[in-house]
């Protein structure tokens, strides 16, 4: 007896390796460059300016304000993203399609909705948030509002896609059973799908919030407020101490997100 899966697996592995290798070639990836003495010196000088940390009261007050602004951008952006993602993910999720178990004649009506919804989600997330931010900075002017909108749209696209994947990957039997006993799609979702998916939804959303904090920093560089704008100023003034203090604040924010995520997972488990 031979394992019938052996050959397909081997082929798949070969294909993956063949696909990955050109990537390293194309990007001229060479770890040796990092250890070149000249490059090491430049990097060392840059890092040297990072100390001592900037801890003046004025700067810390400024930092606190920017930090709160960054958190606000990330949170408000995520709220918009979630409000957008939920209806879209419900439209896209195939397990909630009644036509799959119901009368076959109106299977088309579901697809009418699913395909455009899928395309919209793809469009939202395929354009990087920094590009959206540049667009919105022109539309609503410099400041945090542009960042909120940019995060809302890009992350709405990502959350919508991942939410529907989480819904699909969980046990869909409870949902299908409810549909089979005549319950509506939304009720079946609330009673069959949400309880199954909730822990994963929460932990992914908190992870995305963490990403949103980092993204809001990058967008700050193009003028969308928060820590990023502060960082851009400090960089331009070549004050490495301030940059490193800001980096430490990032670290603390990520740790905070991690703690919140662990806490929420415990609550929803």
């Amino acid at each position: 007896m031979r394992d019938p899966a052996a050959l397909p697996r081997l082929a798949l592995t070969a294909v993956i390796v063949l696909l990955l290798w050109p990537g390293f070639k194309l990007t001229e990836f060479d770890p040796g460059v990092l250890f070149d003495p000249r490059n090491r010196e430049v990097m060392g000088k840059f890092l040297g300016t990072f100390f001592p940390l900037a801890l003046s009261a004025d700067f810390l007050r400024l930092l606190l304000k920017s930090t709160l602004e960054t958190l606000a951008i990330a949170t408000a952006g995520m709220t918009i993203a979630m409000t957008m993602a939920f209806p879209f993910s419900l439209m896209v999720t195939r397990s909630l399609s009644v036509s799959r178990i119901g009368p076959g004649n109106d299977a088309w009506s579901g697809r009418w909705l699913r395909v455009p919804a899928r395309f919209a989600l793809m469009f939202f997330r395929s354009i990087p948030e920094i590009v959206w931010a540049l667009v919105f900075v022109r539309a609503v002017g410099l400041g945090p509002a542009a960042g909120v909108l940019a995060i809302g749209i890009t992350y709405g696209g990502m959350l919508g896609k991942v939410y529907s994947e989480i819904f699909e990957s969980g046990d869909t039997r409870p949902t299908v059973t409810l549909l089979e006993s005549g319950s509506g799609r939304l009720a079946a979702f609330a009673y069959g799908m949400l309880p199954v998916a909730l822990p994963e939804l929460v932990s992914y959303t908190v992870y995305r919030w963490e990403c949103a904090v980092r993204a809001s920093v990058i967008m700050g560089v193009v003028g969308a407020g928060g820590l990023g704008q502060q960082m851009e100023l400090s960089m331009r003034m070549l004050s490495g101490g301030e940059v490193s203090t800001i980096l430490i604040v990032f670290l603390l924010l990520v740790m905070l997100a991690d703690t919140v995520s662990a806490l929420l997972r415990k609550v929803t488990a």
Binding site: D171, P174, T177, G192, P195, P199, T268
Partner: peptide, 10 residues
């Protein structure tokens, strides 16, 4: 159903 299709957390 033989294995009741009820979400574990419900």
């Amino acid at each position: 159903h033989q294995a009741p299709p009820i979400p574990a957390r419900q």
